[in-house]
Nucleic acid binder design. Structure first.
Ligand code: FES
Ligand code: FES
Lengths: 133, 133
DNA sequence: CTTATCCTTACTATTTTAGTCAGGTTTAAA
DNA sequence: TTTAAACCTGACTAAAATAGTAAGGATAAG
């Protein structure tokens, strides 16, 4: 049940952008600062942009910035995008046997508690911390 | 962040044994009933036994049974054994940068809420459900 | 003694994750 | 208007984790 490296990188990048909310930061810069492989980060940022969390500017002096303020973006949303879902279940949410499936009822409870926890943590709450890796 | 097949099988097997608390059930029987590959289940059961959740009897008419009553075993304990840990963090709990690591603080919060949730669910609470796969 | 069962270790195959690469598109600035 | 710095995309490869298999030994009932 570990979180993927991809997600971890994404969270770190988002926190870094939250700290630098007024600036546009390039992937190159961000990758260096956070010690993340540049082309890998590029993919991650593209996903976060497509999901509507970032806006990008192309060309020289271009880069990324948060689309909303750090106190409007939850870690839950970031993780949901990067992990695909926050549910630990192995079968789709519309599974026919869902009703009455013991394992599923347990996994659904886990999902609810994760969601509740993460929807309460905003990027803003994390920018005070000193290390991000 | 999905749970492994191994863990899912393990939970199902434990629930099945909870239903049949008075009997000794062989792996063969259990594997058939729950549609789990027999030699794979064998490994899983051995882990649960080594961790102290099951007791086994060898030889003909042998098999497994729960070591404690279904109202004394939590799903949290079962999952902890099968997953190794309930923490989604990628680095060990003694990581040097743990203090002040933003990502870690988020992952630790997730772990706490998962643990709280799962330590409240006993096998007993699940034996009423009709389907287990 | 034979057979059913657990027990252990080692192996293989499959799937997922992590990361790379190549080449295209946009845009600021010289 | 050319150049270069950035984003953008999709396909590819490598590594790691997971799922599952195989082989053979140990124990105990009948
Ligand atoms: S098998 Fe799909 S919900 Fe349990
Ligand atoms: S790097 Fe180990 S706790 Fe964050």
């Amino acid at each position: 049940m570990r979180v993927s490296q991809r997600t971890e990188y994404g969270i770190r990048a988002m926190i870094a952008l939250a700290r630098d909310f007024d600036d546009v930061v390039s992937i190159k810069e961000l990758a260096e600062r956070e010690a993340i492989p540049e082309p890998f980060l590029e993919q991650i940022m593209a996903d976060l942009r497509r999901a509507g969390l970032l806006k990008s500017t192309r060309g020289p002096y271009g880069g990324y910035r948060l689309k909303s303020a750090p106190d409007e973006i939850t870690v839950g949303r970031v993780m949901e995008i990067l992990e695909g879902t926050l549910s630990p279940a192995r079968c789709a949410s519309g599974c026919a046997r869902q009703r009455g499936c013991s394992t599923r009822s347990v996994l659904d409870r886990i999902e609810r508690s994760i969601t509740e926890t993460l929807d309460d943590i905003y990027l803003k709450d994390l920018i005070g911390d000193t290390v991000d890796e």
